[in-house]
């Protein structure tokens, strides 16, 4: 697997990173809200850290789009 990856062009590293982040976004969305709000009596929308995670992932994908090998 390592050798196969080494044979790919460097730009693929950016694509793989973006794919990893997108997979993480799908996982984040699949987590039920009860797991996020555990222990909170009156949870507010901003306290849903799944949204925080999605914002983070968006920023990361943007970073790997911008800093590609030219």
């Amino acid at each position: 697997m390592i050798e196969w990856l080494q044979s790919l062009p460097t730009e693929w590293a950016n694509y793989i990173s973006m794919l990893l982040f997108l997979a993480l976004a799908v996982f984040t969305l699949s987590i039920p809200s009860k797991a996020i709000f555990a222990g909170l009596l009156k949870p507010k929308t901003w306290q849903d850290i799944r949204y925080w995670a999605l914002l983070l992932i968006t920023i990361q994908v943007a970073i790997y789009v911008v800093f590609q090998r030219v």
Partner: peptide, 8 residues
């Protein structure tokens, strides 16, 4: 300004 460098 490249996030990744070559495999070697």
């Amino acid at each position: 300004l490249s996030a990744y460098l070559s495999a070697d």
